[in-house]
Write a protein that binds this DNA or RNA. Structure first.
Lengths: 195, 195
DNA sequence: CGTCTATTTGAATGTACTCAAAAGCGGTGG
DNA sequence: CCACCGCTTTTGAGTACATTCAAATAGACG
């Protein structure tokens, strides 16, 4: 059960067996049935999750009442509304189990405890945040510099797995476009390939 | 000279006088004339900067040959191409002094040394990365959920200072639109206000 | 004044959106 | 088995927002 998360940690920092033990000891397993929420938009959440199994989709309802997908977390991804987690304020988005999920959870309290007692874990989370920031920056660059079609093609290359497990309109939303537009883009690509 | 950066650190973590001393001792002052580059796209950079004075604009040339503004750092902001800084690979974008600038610099080596010797500084950089990530996420949500006009109005509210110091076409690019479009948006807003 | 750059304006185009409806797909119950 | 339901995807037509190309105007600076 803890093997994937151990590997995830050890891929970035070195931890003693004792520290690893302390770490896993603080984790809580959580099973979510498909459709269940891990965080709910506008409600507080002080939990951070590692996805052992399943898919978690983060989405928000915007001011027009439309749902927009923000993140798609699969196995070995960390997920949370970090804004809510760090600030203690209501969550910007909901996190929903898109399949039956097995998560490993850290509360903010445990997170802080671990950062205080195991410096290498604090380092791990620093590295994790840095990576997430860089990834997020790159996503902004993608949005500004590329058309939807290109972003779609690149997403297929980068994360082929999600296309088998996530409905097209969620993908469209994650790409920042409407489902109809993605449908047309796909049609357009397939006719290109024929000619 | 070190007062702003000290305050910046102490706003997030508690540091002993000795540690603060070690920290500032590792900083290097760097003066950049207007137009000078701090990092150059496609070249390696292992430096992180705190802006003591001036404005640093981060921008990249995309595949179409157009320049796109990615970040605008003013006094008391940290800036770097973090992708290059952390990965050691060539920078995704250039960082240019948009006014005469005074920076305080940490090399990657010094950064690592400080993280290794002063746990509270590592914590500071963890918090900094976390904040930057959340801010970046919010920017993505803004782009997907709002029209250019609304993003422009919100940017004026959030960062009024940059409108006095940065030319309009840089602002346009930072908003992800063309300078002509921003001009029309402004015109549109002003006619609204008259009627 | 002249030059260079930034901003504004105009006209045509393109990308994605909205509204609306049809077709496809999967599951349930008669 | 198939008829029906709900949901997803596709398709069509018209529209909105921003882009592109082009030119005019405005500002800054020697």
């Amino acid at each position: 059960m803890f093997q994937p998360i151990r590997e995830n940690i050890l891929s970035k920092v070195v931890l003693s067996a004792a520290d690893l033990e302390t770490f896993t000891h603080n984790l809580e397993a959580l099973t979510l049935n498909k459709g269940a929420l891990f965080t709910r938009q506008d409600y507080k959440s002080d939990r951070l999750a590692f996805v052992n199994k399943g898919i978690i989709i983060g989405s928000m309802i915007n001011n027009n009442g439309d749902r927009k997908v923000i993140q798609i977390a699969t196995e070995n991804n960390w997920t949370a509304d970090l804004y809510a987690f760090f600030s203690g304020k209501p969550a910007m988005f909901s996190l929903e189990a898109h399949e039956d999920c097995e998560l490993l959870i850290l509360t903010k309290e445990q997170f802080n405890f671990l950062c205080n007692t195991i410096p290498m874990l604090e380092r791990f989370f620093r590295l994790l945040a840095e990576e997430a920031y860089v990834y997020s920056q790159q996503r902004i660059l993608n949005i500004f510099n590329k058309k939807a079609e290109q972003r779609y093609l690149e997403l297929i290359k980068e994360r082929p797995a999600i296309f088998e497990r996530v409905k097209q309109h969620y993908i469209a939303s994650y790409l920042g476009i409407e489902p109809q537009s993605l449908s047309r883009i796909r049609k357009n690509i397939s006719t290109k390939n024929i000619s």
